[in-house]
Amino acid sequence: MIDLGISKLALIGAVALIVIGPEKLPRVARTVGALLGKAQRYVSDVKAEVSRSMELEELRKMKDSVTEAARDMESSVQSGASDFEKSWSEATAGLDGAASSYDTSSPLGSLEPPVYKHPRKNWRLKQGAMPQWYKARAGVRTRTQSGAARVARFRPRSNSAPR
């Protein structure tokens, strides 16, 4: 890196004063300062981008390790479930004859899930459940109105227009 001491900066300043002249030196110094500021901002942006990409790479590695751990856990749970099913089938093997004595017509005896039956309620009755006086007091809109009709309804009346 360039080693700039006070003596070297003073020498550069003296040469710039002689070459550029005292009239143009402040303008050139401002321009050089602005260019140095832009360069510093650019370098800091590049550093921030590099650090962001490194953090992103670390997060990807962490995600991969968590995904791998989840896969391992899932496979161990699957193997444990298959072992449980095997031991359950062995334990209930002698009970097959006893299970047939249950009444399968009852919901408790059947192994099939119950079938959903729609309640067949009349939804029109539900609209009338709230009284009209409550709707009026609470400000519930009961009728649909277009935007133009709403503006016309709430437009202030002028005294000169006959009705």
Rank of each mutant, 00 (worst) to 15 (best):
V19Y: 06
G21T: 04
P22V: 02
R27A: 10
V28K: 11
A29V: 11
A29N: 04
R30D: 13
V32C: 03
V32Y: 07
V32E: 05
G33P: 00
L35V: 08
L36H: 06
L36I: 07
G37F: 08
K38Y: 01
A39K: 08
Q40F: 09
Y42P: 00
Y42W: 03
V43C: 02
V43H: 13
K47A: 12
K47W: 02
E49W: 05
V50K: 15
V50F: 10
V50D: 05
V50L: 14
S51H: 05
S51M: 07
S53K: 15
S53N: 15
S53G: 03
M54W: 01
E55W: 04
E57D: 07
E57Q: 09
E57W: 02
E58N: 08
E58H: 09
L59D: 12
R60E: 12
K61G: 09
M62I: 03
D64Y: 03
V66G: 01
V66R: 14
V66N: 12
T67Y: 05
T67H: 05
E68L: 12
A70S: 04
R71Q: 10
D72P: 00
M73A: 13
E74A: 14
V77M: 06
S82G: 00
K86S: 11
E90S: 10
A91G: 03
A91H: 05
A93P: 00
G94S: 09
D96F: 00
G97V: 10
A99H: 01
S101I: 06
S101G: 05
T104W: 01
T104L: 05
S105Y: 06
S105I: 01
S105D: 13
P107L: 15
G109F: 08
G109E: 08
S110F: 01
L111V: 05
E112R: 13
P113L: 08
P113T: 11
P114H: 07
P114K: 15
Y116N: 03
Y116S: 04
K117P: 00
K117S: 11
H118Y: 11
P119H: 07
P119N: 08
K121G: 12
N122K: 07
N122R: 09
W123P: 01
W123Y: 13
R124W: 10
Q127W: 13
A129K: 09
M130E: 11
P131W: 01
Q132L: 13
Q132H: 11
W133H: 08
W133P: 00
